[in-house]
Amino acid sequence: MKPAVMPLEELMGSGHLACQGCGATQAMRFALKVLGPETALVIPACCWAVIDGTFPHSAVNLPIYHTAFETAAVVASGLKAGLEMRGDTETTVMAWAGDGGTFDIGLQALSGAAERNDDIIYVCYDNEAYMNTGIQRSSSTPVGAWTTTTPVTNYKREPKKNMIDIMAAHSIPYIATASTAYPHDFMAKVKKAKSIRGTKYIQIFAPCPTGWKMAPELSVKSARDAVTSKVYPLLEITEHGQKLKVWKDFEPTSVRDYMKVQGRFRHLKDEEFDQIEKDVEMKWQRLVAKEKMLASIPGLIE
């Protein structure tokens, strides 16, 4: 038998309360595998507030602070400061929030922490809606999607908020996107984030079969297809926003195929798919152009 492809240690155990096929749960397991036991978590209101389990039980063998919806980043800042002031400089503090707690209600606190460049890792597991409260739209919900507050008669017309650009505007040392379908990429990014001082932001695409009205076994596949269809590019922004690296080493797949297995897009018509495909391509082109542009500025990077 070959050596294991990821660390064997499990800091997250069975018996947790996640739905079948939950991407957010896989993501947590991956992250903890590279972070190790010297890690403290901050979790705001989100599915993970429930997944962890019921008092007095927890599925995660780490110190965790559950906090109010909008406070993940700053509680992490406070926690880090508190730990340092009592002599613990080793513990990695990771805020772990959903897209609602990041793109929407927690944006302010996150912006504050990022601007201060507090020494935390902030991971947003992006399942593209408020799942914990029963699948309401968030500003991360993609255009075209059904949610309980964007019914098919009035599905979401607004594009997903570009959170990565927002974070890049804070000039923090490290920003990355990831996908649950690429655990090794994600783990490498978390590992890198751990080695950097300051605010690190990682946004991992984490399918929610329940909220996307999709068979749970398609969880990883949709996470993969999102990347290969260019819907969710994998990228890294380093050097305080100066350097952008976009992953392109894949066989491109169809946006439509990615969307079609998900019930949340089932109502869309061909013309609407056409438009979405165009938008995806346009955004991809812009992203790649930006990567080139940044690389071409002489003297910017040594």
């Binding site: 909008e70 800042s77 926690l79 400061a81 508190g82 730990l83 302010q108 606190a109 201060r116």
Partner: peptide
Amino acid sequence: AKFIKVESEHSAMAACVGASAAGS
């Protein structure tokens, strides 16, 4: 002491929550 200059009072209390939870 560390002085965390937050962006709101909500965050000020949240930061205190974190710090106090850490045992400071």
